[in-house]
Nucleic acid binder design. Structure first.
Length: 373
DNA sequence: AAAGCGGGGCC
DNA sequence: GGCCCAGCTTT
C-alpha cells in the first residue's frame, strides 16, 4: 500500500538525516532524565537559542531534582527571569518536590506516573519518556504538527483537539522499533532546521520527494491554524519611586496566582479601575498616582508621596494583554519614617539579585540607570 | 473548547 | 508591526 511506503520512507530517511545533521545542544550532552525534563519545560513556546544559556545556568544552580526541590522559590524564579511563562518554573519546582518525596529523587520512567506531575502535559510526558528512556511515545509539538501536516498534506485545523489526537497516532506509527528517542528528536529537528514555519527549505529536506504538501504546492500554507485574538489594551499608571538617598526603589510582590504570579514589579494601577480618563494629562497622572500610592502604603506614608516628573511611556505585549504604562518618578518617605507593609518593599541594587522581575520592568530600570545595562 | 499565561526572533 | 513559536492549566 502506497501510504505504508510513504510512512516507512519518511521514518528511514528522517532518521538517517538526523544522525548526520543533529545539533550539538547542551541537553543532548546529558543522559540525565532530570536534565532532559528541564530542557523540555524551558523549550515550551521558547526557541532553542533563547533556552541555551538559561538551561546551563539552571542545571548548574540546581544540578539534581533534590537540589531544585530544596531551593527557595525566589531563587528558582530568578533563574527563570526573562524566559516568560513563569508558572513553568513554579510547576517544575513543585514537581521536583513531589519526585523528591515520593520517588526519592528518581524521575519516574512511565508516562502514567510522570504525567501526574505538575506542569507535565501530553507533549512533555511523551518527550521526556521517549528522549530519556527511549519509550515509544508520541510527543506532538508545533514542529511535529507542521512537519506531519505538510508531509501528509493534512488540512485539518491543528488548533483542534481531534487533529492533535490524530497526529499522536500518526507519529506513534512512524516511530521505528527501538528508535523512539532519536526519531522524536529527528522530527522536531527537521521542523526547527528545515521544515520551518515560513520559507521552508524544501530543497535540502530528506523527505521532499514524497512530501504530499510540497507536491500539492501547499508547503507555505500548511499547517492550517485558526488565528489568535488580538491582545486587549490596558492603560496603566506606573510609579518609579526612588528612595531619598537614591539607593533603593519601591517594589511590590504580585499575587501567587494569575499574570506574572509571585514576580516583583514597580507599583502600577489601571486607569479604568480608578475611574481615571485614559487621556489624562501628565501632571494629572502624577498627582493621581501619588494619591493612589499614598493610600496604598497606609496612613504613615500617606501624604509623604509626591509626584516628581513624568518618565515616559513603556509598552509591553503579553499573549492576551497589551500594557501601556505611563511611568512617573515619585518621591516618598523612606523606611525609617514610614515602615512598609506587604506586598511593598524597598529594594537596593544588591537586592535586585533576589527579586525576580518581568522583562518590562527590567528594561525600565535599566533605562533609568537603576540596574546596570 | 476557549481563555489565561511571556517573551523574543523574524519578515 | 504583525506573526509565529519544542504547551500546560483552569474554566
Amino acid at each position: 500500500m502506497q501510504e505504508q511506503e510513504a510512512k516507512a520512507y519518511f521514518s528511514k530517511e528522517l532518521l538517517a538525516w538526523y544522525r548526520v545533521q543533529k545539533r550539538d545542544l547542551p541537553w543532548r550532552r546529558s543522559r540525565d532524565p532530570y536534565h532532559i525534563w528541564v530542557s523540555e519545560v524551558m523549550l515550551q513556546q521558547t526557541r532553542v537559542e533563547t533556552v541555551k544559556p538559561y538551561f546551563k545556568r539552571f542545571v548548574t544552580l540546581f544540578p539534581t531534582v533534590d537540589a531544585l526541590a530544596k531551593a527557595p522559590e525566589e531563587k528558582v524564579l530568578k533563574a527563570w527571569e526573562g524566559l516568560g511563562y513563569y508558572s513553568r518554573a513554579r510547576n517544575l519546582q513543585s514537581a521536583a518536590r513531589e519526585v523528591s518525596e515520593r520517588y526519592g529523587g528518581t524521575v519516574p520512567d512511565t508516562k502514567e506516573r510522570f504525567s501526574e506531575l505538575k506542569g507535565v502535559g501530553p507533549y512533555t510526558a511523551g518527550a521526556v519518556m521517549s528522549i530519556a528512556f527511549n519509550r515509544r511515545e508520541p510527543a506532538v509539538d508545533g514542529n511535529v504538527m507542521r512537519v506531519l501536516s505538510r508531509y501528509f498534506c493534512i488540512e485539518e485545523d491543528v488548533a483542534k483537539g481531534g487533529t492533535r489526537a490524530m497526529m499522536e497516532r500518526l507519529q506513534y506509527e512512524l516511530i521505528p522499533e527501538g528508535e523512539a528517542s532519536d526519531f522524536n528528536q529527528a522530527i522536531m529537528e527537521l521542523g526547527a532546521l528545515v521544515c520551518t514555519p515560513k520559507s521552508p527549505h524544501c530543497l535540502t529536506c530528506p523527505v521532499m520527494e514524497r512530501c504530499a504538501g510540497r507536491l500539492e504546492g501547499k508547503e507555505e500554507s500548511l499547517p492550517i491554524k485558526t488565528k489568535a485574538k488580538p491582545p486587549r489594551p490596558e492603560y496603566r499608571a506606573c510609579a518609579l519611586v526612588v528612595s531619598e538617598d537614591g539607593g533603593s526603589v519601591l517594589l511590590r510582590k504580585r499575587p501567587a496566582t494569575g499574570l506574572l504570579a509571585d514576580m516583583w514589579e514597580l507599583p502600577h494601577v489601571e486607569f479604568a479601575a480608578m475611574g481615571w480618563p485614559a487621556a489624562m494629562a501628565d501632571a494629572a497622572v502624577g498627582d493621581a498616582l501619588a494619591g493612589w500610592l499614598g493610600a496604598e502604603l497606609g496612613p504613615e506614608a500617606s501624604g509623604a508621596v509626591r509626584p516628581a516628573e513624568p518618565v515616559g511611556v513603556a509598552e509591553h505585549t503579553f499573549s492576551h494583554i497589551h500594557w501601556n504604562l505611563r511611568v512617573h518618578r515619585l518621591t516618598a518617605a523612606t523606611a525609617e519614617s514610614a515602615p512598609l507593609q506587604e506586598p511593598y518593599r524597598w529594594v537596593d541594587r544588591a537586592g535586585m539579585e533576589v527579586h525576580p522581575l518581568p522583562n518590562v520592568f527590567v528594561r525600565l530600570l535599566k533605562a533609568e540607570g537603576f540596574i546596570p545595562a
